[in-house]
Structure formats: C-alpha cells, structure tokens
Design a binder for these strands. Sequence first.
DNA 1: TTAACCTACGTAACCGCTTAACCAAGGACG
DNA 2: CGTCCTTGGTTAAGCGGTTACGTAGGTTAA
Lengths: 348, 348
Amino acid sequence: MTDRSTIYQVARLSGVSTATVSRVMRDGSGFSMATRDRVLKAAAELGWLPSGPARGLASRRAGIVGLLFPDLDQSGEAEQESPLYVDEVIRGAERAATSVGDAVLIAATHTSSGRQLAFSVAGKVDGLVVMARSLSQQDIAAIARSIPVVMLANRARRGLDVVSADNRGGARDMTSHMIEVHGCREIAFVGGPARSPDSVARFAGFQDALRAADLSTPDEPAAAGGFTESGGARAMRELLAHGRRPEAIVFGNDEMAIGALSVLRAARIRVPVDIAVTGFDDIAAARHVHPPLTTVRQPMRQLGERSVRLLLDRLDQPTAPRRSITLPVEMVPRRSCGCRPPAKGRTT
Amino acid sequence: MTDRSTIYQVARLSGVSTATVSRVMRDGSGFSMATRDRVLKAAAELGWLPSGPARGLASRRAGIVGLLFPDLDQSGEAEQESPLYVDEVIRGAERAATSVGDAVLIAATHTSSGRQLAFSVAGKVDGLVVMARSLSQQDIAAIARSIPVVMLANRARRGLDVVSADNRGGARDMTSHMIEVHGCREIAFVGGPARSPDSVARFAGFQDALRAADLSTPDEPAAAGGFTESGGARAMRELLAHGRRPEAIVFGNDEMAIGALSVLRAARIRVPVDIAVTGFDDIAAARHVHPPLTTVRQPMRQLGERSVRLLLDRLDQPTAPRRSITLPVEMVPRRSCGCRPPAKGRTT
DNA sequence: TTAACCTACGTAACCGCTTAACCAAGGACG
DNA sequence: CGTCCTTGGTTAAGCGGTTACGTAGGTTAA
C-alpha cells in the first residue's frame, strides 16, 4: 500500500550493505548468524519483500515458467464440460516449479489473440511449456528463438524438447485387453478429429493390437466423433444405422464413449453384455456413468510435472541434446468392457 | 538461446532511440507510421521480445496478478477427485487478466511451506487473489501489507476486498424448492466440516427456508460428512441407523450427496421416490450419477473473473473504499429431487 | 614471523527497460 | 515576420536488486 520498501532501507536499518541483505535473502553464505538475524528482523519490521522484477532483471532469471494451453471454450462445439483436464496438468507443473522456487504463469490462447498474448507471456517467463494445439507452429518457432520451449503434445516440433503420454501404447493395451481377456474378435474404433495426433496415435495402437492378434485390421476408424459427447452419440447412431454390431467398440476418448452409452441405452442395447465399450482419458465422469466406463488414464499431473522439469533442465543446460519423454498410461478396467466391478470401497 | 537481444540493438538497427522503440512497443503515440514499421521490422528481425522484468522494474508494474489456492491433495482424506474446481476459477481469472494485458501467476499452498511460497509469489506479482483456506490469516495480513489482496472466500478478512458466491441464498433456494415444489416438510441437512464457512453459510440458508415456511428449524445439521464422498456415505448410514427417514436430504455439497446415493442404492431406498437428495456445487460427476443430482451451481468462472477485476481496480485505485461482491448461484434441478429430467438433448 | 588463506563483509557497476524533461523543425496564426 | 503549437523525436536518470571484485582482520602452515 504505502510504497513498498527497498533493499536499501533494509540495509540501513540492519546496519549492513545491500550486498549482505541480498546474500541473506537468497540464503547463500558469507555472513554470520548474528548478521542474518538482524537483516531478517529488519526485513520483517519493514514488511519488505524483494522485488521480483528487480531480481529478475539483475539475475537474468525471472523465476517463472509459463504454461500455455488452448482455450477450450472457443474450440469446436461448445460442450458444457471442458474436454481437457488442464487443472491436473497445472497442478503438476506448479509442483515441479515450486520445488525449485519458481512459479508458474499460465495463459490460455483464446485462438483469436493467441499471438499477441503468447509474446506478452514469453517476455515474462524464463521458458514455456506449450500444450498441444495452443499455438501455431510458426508462433512456436518464433518464441523458441528467444526462450526455451517444451512441447506437451504428441507430435514434436523438430528441435524442441517434448513430453507426451503413450497414447499408442494405451490404445494397444486397451484393445489387447478386449481381445485376450474378453475374447472379442470384432472390434471397432471410433476416432476423434481426423488429423488429431491423439486420435491418430490411438488408432495406430488399436491397429497394433489387432495385427498382433492376427485379426483383420481396418485402415481407418469405423467412424469419427470429433472427441465430443454429442459426436460420439452421432457416431454410435451411425454405426447402428449401418447395421454394424461389433462385439466391442474402442472409443478414442471418454466423451465419445459416454455419448455412445446413452444412445445404446436408448436403443436397449446392453453394455457390456450385448456390446462392450471403452474410452480413453479417464475423465471424472467416467466412473459415474452406467455402466462405469473402462478407460485409459493419462498421467496428467505427471505430464505437467515432467514437462516443467524438462524445461528447468533445459534452462540449466541450454545446449544439452534435445529430449523426448513418453509417459506410460494406465488401463482402468471398469464394467463397460465386461470386467467385474473392482472390490467394493475405494474405486481406482 | 543465443543471448536475448535488447532494446538497444533494436533501436540501433531501426535508427531511432530506445525511447521511441519503447513507445512503439507499448503502442503509445508520438511517432510516425514509418518509424513504427521500421521499429517493428527490426524487432522481428532480431527476434526481440521486451524483458518482462525490466519493464516491471522500470514501470513498477509487473503485469502479473497472482492466484493462490489451497493444495487439495494434502487436505483431509485423499479422495481421488479434487474437491475443488479450481480450473474454472483459473480460467476466469486468466480471462480477466489477459483482457488488460496482464498474466496470471498461480500457486498452490501445499500447507507445509505455504509461508515461504506465498512470499516468493508475492514478490513477483502486482496483487494477489487468495482463495479460501489457502493461507493463514496471519500470512494474509503480512502480505497485504505490501501488495493488494483480494479474498475469494465466504468470510472476509477485515479491510480486504472480497468476492464470494451466495452460498446462503443458494441453500435457501434449494430448500424452498423442496418445500414448495415437492411439498416436503421433513428435510434434513448434512453439513461439511463444522467450522467451514461454506458449510455454515449453506446451513444458514437451509434454516432460512424452513423458517420462512414455518417449519420446525433445527439448530444444527442432522449430520456432518466432511464434504467428502466417503463422509457423505458415512453420514447417510448414520442417519439410517438412527431410524431417520426424512422426505428429503439437502447435502452441503455434491461429493457427500454422491456418497449418500450409493448407500441408498445399496439399501434399496429409491431416490427420489422414497427420499429426495440434493447437492451443492454441480461438480462434473453430478449429472452422471444415478439419478442425476439436483444441485446448485457456483459461478466458478465468474468468481475468478470478478476477483481479478476487483484486484485490478484496486491496483488502479489503492485508496478506494473496500468492496465486497457476492455472486448469485444457480439452482440446477435434475432427477434426484423429484424433478423431471429436462427436455432431452443438451443437459444444462 | 611471515606468507597464504579464510571469513565476513562493503563498493559499485551493471541488468534492460520506462519516462520525465528537453529540443528541433514545420506549420498556423495574428 | 515573430510567436506559439504540434509532431516526432532524443537524452539520461532512475527502477531495486545481483554480483564481481576488493579488503580488513583473524587463522593456519611453514
């Protein structure tokens, strides 16, 4: 309120130089305990907190990492629920950052002003984690010219560090589960937007599993549902209309699977008895729908955590070789695939 | 990568002074279009982006607002889902901030190191929005000494701006709905942690409604469920064990209501036929449980938005009188209270 | 006893911007 | 024709820290 006090005032009040105050604050070394106490006392008395900008300028390190994510409302159909689980990512990022004393700056690229925004943010941070589809390749390239960028996405820009979840492996495991555990032989895949790297990777995993089991392997998803609940419903109706009745349907994400479930219910087709259904992502709703949805959980928090750690490493070692990290995903069997409900109590 | 370029280099390359470059970048006035273009071109060529810290230091305005929220995992029982909906708040905050060119710095106070962290953050931002229970009153006071603080909570610290949702009004409306629309006369309230301001406010609203309808009004919640799913289940079992069978139960939040639903299902008590159930918060799962949960939606995004706007106002007008904003909540009728499912299609 | 080191500081030169103050030149105006 | 704005700039003094370098006094090794 009253103008913030400065290091000079603290120095004077505690009878030392600003250099010493600075040393104490960053608890380095080179001062006696007595001095330390005097400085701390003076600082508390004045209600002083070191100016971030000043430190940043002097040390060339803002102590802030940025997290850029796509603004979800703008994109595609205006589904009520956010299709992403950004908060877990944020939480992971926050954790990794604070563990080394950094803070996390977040920004959503409302697709309109993305550019403007991104640059404003880029100036304030030491490095940036960019989530998939939040920025054009061009803009990313421009930003990466001046600060380190880590991609949190399936597909990397050449030259940039990247962390992603093992979408392909997850879809493969999921599909293999249907084949081996539930003995399905006719399985359909419903994809998201055709060019979505996530959708592509998951379909590839689906193919992997079919091939490995020597089953006939389609070249394309049986339908596309745009990764939305209504899209999934639409795709399901489409399949039924075409008389397709596979033993199981592997959906590219949970939203679509959930949309399909309501269509199936309306059509009096029992899940999983008549047809098994699986999703991907393990969104919050997945365990609450009926039947609870078998799905694949992405390690959202870890994704956030690892990408920030990678960024911090990069800041320390600007010239180290580029790294690419893929995190394992986890299959979460629930009832919609035909598995028994897990032992009562805590649901996984 | 290569050392970032500075305003001097841009000035030299474009043949003007740094002052002019600065003016162009903050698109003020006092330069010709020709000059502007030259500067912009030079900046692009050098891949220059203005140093946030330098600007912040010189202008005494970091262009960053902080958002402090409690770290949810540490608190209480380790339920799988986060009991808060921080991401919507963040989104709202982000939106309000970027609309004026600011960015949002987020930090979660893992209760252990809260103090440390908060101070590190406070130095980096121009002001702070502090969510309920993320910081002790003491620490808040200390921080508020040096930067403006807006509380996002039910209960304000004296002297600080505050924004909150109308919890009391929401609970009142909910309860009145049960009385007037569904004709209930025996209604029980299940609270959260006894001293939680949210729980207290909601119970007060519950009492308001009963009193207004001249029904007998208890002085305390019928049970307490700690705002968790398992706690709600426990409370439900307790009520049943004591032979209490009200016509409706108003739960202090959705988690508890959802926990109760599974207990009721297990006990073969039909909802809403035998007993009606309502929640509070409208978490994602609420519309997916069976039956879909009637609840009260808090305007999370707006809460974030308004609190940041309030903070920005405060930054402009440090001496303006303190303000307190209460945002209306919205009742979301679904099946668990006995209402019909809304017309098919888009669920609200 | 003296050279060689520590330890615990102080001095002052930056870090890369913003901005107040100042200035030159080219009309407009009386 | 001299005066006064306007327009389109320049100069330079900070902003509040950090940190390389210097130094005084006490220890230790030779």
